[in-house]
């Protein structure tokens, strides 16, 4: 069976869970204002916007892994 995912992709997938859940107690404050937004809201928004980028990287990692798998298969 072909490998469906890689450790690298899974690690990338863990990032939103770390930044948007585990890190919340550390970023629960208003100052400093960034781009006019209170810090907590800015942090959340920034990581929500970065999630597609992270998933895209995971997608590339999986593709590369699958291609090298295909290369080795007879």
């Amino acid at each position: 069976m072909k490998k469906r995912t890689t450790w690298l992709a899974l690690l990338l997938g863990a990032i939103p869970f770390i930044t948007l859940v585990l890190a919340l107690p550390l970023v629960n404050r208003v100052e400093p204002l960034i781009l006019g937004l209170p810090f907590l809201l800015f942090w959340i928004l920034a990581w929500v916007i970065l999630t597609p980028v992270i998933l895209w990287l995971a997608y590339l990692a999986e593709r590369r892994c699958r291609r090298s798998d295909d290369g080795e298969a007879p």
Binding site: T5, A9, L10, G13, P16, F17, L20, V21, W47, V48, T51, I54, L55, A58, Y59
Partner: peptide, 10 residues
């Protein structure tokens, strides 16, 4: 939602 989609990717 962002977490749900991350999960759905896998």
């Amino acid at each position: 939602g962002a977490l749900a989609y991350t999960l759905s990717f896998f």
